[in-house]
Amino acid sequence: MKPLLHRVPRLILVILALALFGVVRAPVETRLRDQLVAANLLLPPPGQGAFEQMSQSALMGTLGGLRSLVATFLTLEAYDHFSTKSWDALRQTYQIITSLEPRDESHWVSVIWHIGINATANMELDTKLPQFERDRRFKEYAFQAITLAERGLAQLPESAAIRLQLAEVYREKLKDDCATSRVYGDIIGLPGEPAYARRFHGYFMARCPGREKEAYAYLMALYREGERQHLPTLIKEIQKLEEKLRIPTPQRIPDADPDRPKKAPKPRTNVLPGGIVVP
């Protein structure tokens, strides 16, 4: 060993040893990396767009293996944009956050909520802008929220939370009952599906032009499941459809109209008109 050490320059020996080790470990590391990514333990590389948009410190943090840490601090920065109603800056910040942690559902839900609900609400109220501009921006933000939801669902196809947030945008902001019903329908059967998703799918289908018959059949199926489904909204929606579809009276549900005021209680017999109490 010693003569070899004296004959060959040390630097060459070191480089050769490093290269040999590198050649041996490279396939092992590639396989391990694929397995770690498949097990969701290692994050896939951020998208190219994320690198271009990152500030110098965020980039250094990301390169230094601190993606989660950088994403968390960017979340705080996004909150700052929310406080100052800087919606475009907020969206850009979330674009980086979701590139850094594409599998974190809460980031997608937050950005859809901020852009789809808060930014649009701000456009409804911000009187500093002319009405035309407010309307234009309202639509722009609502559609941006839909695009963000689609991107989130491409990353997390099983996410009920992203769909719930998307449904809220369709329901509250765009008043698109058909799309709302479709999104609630997509939630049914997913992990984390809320109990009301099935009912909401039916309620909004009932309001979607052209789908009344389908909605009636669907809501009646829910009604037949038993007492626990006999909620006021369900009864009201079925009764509206019965009217609309001219369902014969014997086939109609027997429940009273939930909106009809209940009978007033009988006045006490010892109270005379004018509020005079007879002892």
Partner: peptide, 21 residues
């Protein structure tokens, strides 16, 4: 890739922290 260690591989704590099995 051959000469420099792949440190990114050792960042698998991030997935665990996010709640992955």
């Amino acid at each position: 890739k051959i000469l420099i260690p792949n440190y990114q591989l050792f960042s698998f704590s991030e997935g665990i922290v996010q709640g992955e099995a």
